[in-house]
């Protein structure tokens, strides 16, 4: 891909052709404030915070503006500063001031942008403050939706559409009454939402926030145990408990994405009823046993049932390699082709 040279605030940078000004800036380590942009999604240009001035005359939105060789961009032009500041002030004036107790305190994009723009308490005092009072949607077992914090950036809508192809949510109503809604404004749990939580991790504020998670003390890189896809996960650990799961962006298998089980189904790990040893039936009751004990029993019993009377059913939760071994074992050791898999349709 060929490169072009553009100038941002007097700084010449190289940019890949076909990228936008915002992308080019980010790739060169320059920060242009933005809210509705997400690297995984097509730019929407709705928050208007990434506004810049192009070639000294035109106000443009950097997330949608394609780079052109010789382009001169200003992010600090007085007109740009004014539009950006007013836009962020409007958002803040319509946002709850509950930062200290907010889930996203310190990771909130609105906070970051407001801080960058330099909003002072007196600036906000000029405005008529109002916070929307739509009841929270707590129907989903894994995450809540708080409309009062929603800045209508549309990242969740685009995630559900572009990445997940589910389209469980979209804009409803119009003007100030606009809100993110399911079809017919039903609770999320009753919609076609699959609770993958992809929107939740991308929400720049705490409009979508997971239930019952705590900030981890450290993160441990691992592989999700649920299925053979083998998504990379970052397990959030606090003490000896797992308190959160994030998709591993560096893992080539899932590139950060997770499904509902991988993201929210981690409670079994510390569950008291979790099986930690094999169980062997003795006198009609299942009792805990060692692996040697269990394997000895299997060997003793299986050897009596070789041939067509044996069949094996393999699981999608194990890896390809393990599935290969099961069919090898069934055919070569047990001497039958009676092998099947739970994911076979």
């Amino acid at each position: 891909m060929s490169e072009v040279t553009i100038t941002i605030d007097g700084l010449e940078i190289k940019a890949r052709e076909g990228t936008t000004v915002l992308q080019a800036a980010q790739e060169n380590g320059l920060y242009i404030p933005n809210l509705c942009n997400h690297p995984d999604l097509d730019p929407a240009g709705l928050c208007r915070v990434c506004v810049v001035k192009m070639d000294d005359w035109k106000i443009a939105i950097s997330c949608k503006l394609p780079v052109k060789d010789g382009m001169v961009i200003s992010t600090e032009d007085p007109e740009v500063q004014q539009i950006r500041k007013n836009t962020v002030e409007l958002l803040v004036a319509n946002h709850p001031m509950t930062c200290l107790t907010c889930e996203r305190d310190s990771t909130c994009e609105l906070q970051k942008v407001a801080h960058y723009v330099g909003i002072k308490p007196d600036d906000i005092k000029r405005y008529r403050r109002s916070v929307r009072s739509i009841p929270m949607d707590t129907s989903n077992p894994f995450f809540d939706m708080d409309h009062s914090k929603c800045i209508l950036c549309g990242i969740c809508v685009r995630t559900c559409d572009e990445l997940q192809n589910i389209n469980a949510i979209n804009y409803a109503q119009r003007g100030v009454a606009s809100l993110i809604s399911t079809l017919g404004n039903k609770p999320i749990a009753e919609s076609r939402c699959e609770s993958c939580g992809e929107c939740v991790v991308r929400c720049p504020v705490a409009a979508l926030s997971p239930k019952n998670t705590m900030e981890p003390m450290r993160q441990v890189k691992s592989i999700c145990t649920y299925c053979g896809v083998g998504c990379g996960v970052m397990l959030g650990v606090r003490g000896d408990q797992i308190v959160s799961v994030e998709g591993d962006y560096d893992n080539p298998v899932n590139q950060g994405s997770l499904c509902v089980k991988g993201r929210y189904g981690y409670k079994f790990i510390n569950h008291p009823e979790r099986l930690k040893t094999p169980l062997v039936r003795k006198n009609g009751e299942l009792v805990e046993a060692t692996w040697d004990e269990a394997l000895d029993q299997i060997e003793a019993k299986f050897s009596k049932h070789k041939g067509e009377k044996f069949a094996a059913l393999a699981s999608a939760r194990i890896t390809n390699e393990d599935n290969y071994l099961i069919q090898k074992f069934t055919r070569a050791v047990m001497g039958t082709n009676n092998i099947d898999h739970c994911a076979r349709l």
């Binding site: 928050c47 208007r48 836009t87 409007l90 958002l91 008529r128 800045i151 209508l152 100030v176």
Partner: peptide, 22 residues
């Protein structure tokens, strides 16, 4: 205009509302 704004962009959605309230 506040009623008829489509609501997608911030300056129009919240700006017209703020102007109206003032």
């Amino acid at each position: 205009t506040e009623e008829e704004s489509c609501g997608q962009c911030v300056p129009c959605r919240l700006g017209t509302k703020q102007l109206l309230e003032i």
